[in-house]
Lab assay of single mutants.
Amino acid sequence: RSTHNEMEKNRRAHLRLCLEKLKGLVPLGPESSRHTTLSLLTKAKLHIKKLE
């Protein structure tokens, strides 16, 4: 059980790190620190579409 908890903790930490990296790559506007994961991913998707 503790192994599972540790793996889950590591998974969440990795996900958080990846989202922070994404936040640095996507133009978010003036309220960049107030975005939810969903809004960050939505803006990333729109940004990628613009680049295509």
Results as ranks from 00 to 15, higher is better:
L17Q: 12
R11H: 09
N5Y: 07
H4I: 12
G24S: 14
L51D: 05
H14K: 11
E8A: 08
R34M: 08
E52G: 15
K45P: 03
E6G: 10
P27T: 14
R34K: 12
L19Q: 00
S39L: 02
E20I: 01
A13Y: 06
K21C: 04
E52C: 15
M7L: 10
E20H: 07
K45V: 02
R11W: 12
K49L: 05
L17D: 02
G24F: 10
K9P: 07
K45W: 07
S33L: 15
L15I: 12
L25S: 01
N10Y: 01
H4G: 14
R34I: 10
K23D: 00
L51V: 00
L25M: 12
S32F: 08
R11A: 08
K43T: 04
E8W: 10
E20V: 08
N5W: 11
T37Q: 09
L28F: 14
L38T: 10
G29D: 08
S39R: 12
L46Y: 11
S33F: 15
K50H: 04
N10Q: 08
I48L: 13
L28A: 08
T37C: 15
V26T: 05
P27W: 11
L15R: 00
R34Q: 12
K45T: 01
M7P: 13
L19C: 04
K9C: 02
N10K: 07
L40Q: 01
L40M: 09
S32K: 14
S39C: 09
N10R: 04
A13G: 11
M7N: 09
K49N: 01
L51W: 11
L46R: 13
S33T: 13
T42K: 14
K43L: 03
G24N: 09
A44K: 00
L19Y: 03
N5A: 14
S39Y: 01
H14P: 11
T3W: 03
R1S: 02
L40V: 07
T37R: 11
R12K: 12
R12Y: 03
L25V: 04
L51C: 02
E8M: 05
T42I: 05
L19T: 04
G29E: 03
T3A: 09
L51S: 06
C18L: 13
K45A: 04
T3Y: 07
V26I: 14
L40C: 02
H14V: 09
N10M: 03
G24K: 15
G29I: 12
K9N: 11
K45I: 05
T36Y: 13
K23Y: 00
T37G: 12
H14M: 11
R11T: 08
T37I: 14
K49V: 01
H35G: 14
P30D: 07
K50Y: 02
L15Q: 01
P27N: 10
C18S: 01
A44H: 00
L41M: 02
S39G: 10
E20R: 04
E8K: 09
P30G: 13
L17A: 10
N5T: 12
P27H: 14
E52P: 15
E6P: 14
R11P: 14
S2H: 12
V26G: 03
L25G: 01
R1T: 06
L46G: 05
L22M: 07
C18G: 05
G29L: 11
H35P: 10
L19A: 03
R11Q: 08
E52V: 12
K23T: 02
S33G: 11
L28V: 05
G24L: 07
L41W: 15
G29C: 12
L41E: 00
L46Q: 13
E8D: 10
E52F: 12
K21I: 03
L19N: 03
H47K: 14
K43E: 00
H47C: 14
L40G: 01
K23A: 07
K21D: 00
L25A: 04
I48C: 04
T37E: 01
P30Q: 13
L40R: 05
S33E: 06
G29F: 13
N10S: 10
P30S: 12
G29M: 10
L25H: 00
G29Y: 09
C18Q: 01
E20S: 11
L38Y: 06
L38C: 14
L28D: 00
L41G: 01
A13Q: 07
H14F: 05
K49M: 05
H35D: 03
L40Y: 03
L28C: 13
